[in-house]
């Protein structure tokens, strides 16, 4: 875990006002400890992603709001799918076989 100043050092060229904006907008959800912020690895990786979107892709605040919300929905869905597939994994072979057949017959025709 690193603090506010540590994260600023990790993201070369990022200024404190910008990082504060990310927290205000709830793009980042660091933990609060006394008066300090604490960033876990997941927060640092997300900060790097936001930094790239801002700097390299020149996304403004509104656009980034939208992109992050879509990404978060996508990952939420992928996590749910992962749980579903883990649950399927524990089913008897004949159940998994039946599901695999249903899935392949439900495939849309190739374009």
């Amino acid at each position: 875990m690193i603090d506010f100043a540590g994260l600023l050092l990790r993201l070369e060229g990022l200024d404190a006002a910008e990082l504060r904006l990310w927290i205000e907008r709830r793009w980042l959800l660091p933990e609060r400890a006394e008066k300090a912020y604490l960033f876990r690895e997941v927060d640092v990786a997300r900060a790097e992603l936001i930094y790239e979107m801002r700097r390299e892709f020149a996304l403004d605040e509104e656009a980034l709001d939208l992109v992050l919300s879509l990404l978060d929905q996508l990952y939420g869905l992928r996590r749910a799918l992962k749980r579903l597939s883990d649950a399927l994994e524990t089913q008897p072979a004949e159940v998994r076989q039946a599901i695999a057949e249903a899935l392949s017959s439900a495939l849309p025709p190739a374009p």
Binding site: L29, R40, E41, V42, V44, A45, R46, E48, L49, L71, D72, Q73, L74, Y75, G76, L77, R78, R79, A80, K82, R83, L84, A87
Partner: peptide, 24 residues
Amino acid sequence: HAAYRGFAEGAEGAKYHPEGAIDL
């Protein structure tokens, strides 16, 4: 490049994207 994806799909990713509307 430590892709955010690696964390997003792990247990710690849940704080930014709960499975939300989908109750498995």
